[in-house]
Amino acid sequence: MSKRRGTGLATVNYPTGMNLGGDPTQALIHSTTTGNFVVTLSSTDLGQGLKTAMAQIAADAMGVPVDNIIVDTGDTDTGPHCMGTFASRGTHRAGNAVIDAADEARDVLMEVAAEELEAAPSDLEPDGDGNIHVLGAPDRSISVMDAAMAAHFEQGRTISGRGIGFKPKSDVDPETGEMDPDSTEAHATVVTEVEVDTETGEVDVLTVKAVYEIGQMVNPALVDGQIIGGAWMGMAHALYETTDPYYPDIDHKPGSFGEYSLPGPSEVPDIEYEVLEIPSQTGPYGVKGIGEMSATPPIPAIVNAIKDAIGVQITEIPVTPEVVLRALEDEKESSEEPPVAENRDGGDEP
């Protein structure tokens, strides 16, 4: 038995959002009677934490506590329009939409508070703790809740705002081929170490070390979840997962979780990473997308590490033990061929 180790590297330049035929996400914000702000979106949280990120952005943009934000992503039939949570665009597009909507809603909130405080709206500032103060007169203030109550029951006003995060359609320049396909680009470099068992063909990923350049983080714990989960998923794609594995008969393909090949908790490598925050020009607070790119660069990094370990470039995924053993066999056969072919059958090789 022989175990060989190798190191591989991959670098990725990953787009946030797509061009499409114009790419919008809308947001609506309105206040309840008690000064909570409902952010209505059709952008769906699949567990990546979009609702948390949107509540943080809305709270910051409205100047109210995050506990007073309710994010409603209930229904894509009746909600404002969103193209979808794909292309790592959720936080970027919906975040811009929420800031846009909050700007409008905050102006109304300040007008309502200004009337209650007998001050000019431009002289007011929210403290982020649920109160609105007159600048330079700390004792003159009103709670956001009282302002919302006044809007509903005394002033007869609706505190609300409409917003959109939008990328216009970008056509290809027929002369140069130039176009603007995405909203910003995030970057990463991933280095993996693997151990390949040349007897069984099994590949063990020992470490994943990565640097992600992803713009401003809205929530580091959510970013951590994406990177750790993505490293595991990248490893799963590189070595395990396929809905159509090679079998003599297609009927033998997996039909359930029990048959579908996935790495388990004991196969998780040691994962270390650094995040570089280099703000984008287009995202809310300089955000870029981290979603999909966490799962992609580990794949070529692992395949390159296998090449470093066994000297064979594998060009298919998943790199199952069978793929490794066949690659080693092919390599052995081609290296065993004698340099002069005239004594062999089919001696037309070079």
Binding site: G47, G225, I228, L262, P265, V268, I271
Partner: peptide, 10 residues
């Protein structure tokens, strides 16, 4: 089976 976390946090 967990699809999201990569098991480490669990």
């Amino acid at each position: 089976v967990c699809r999201c976390t990569g098991y480490d946090p669990i």
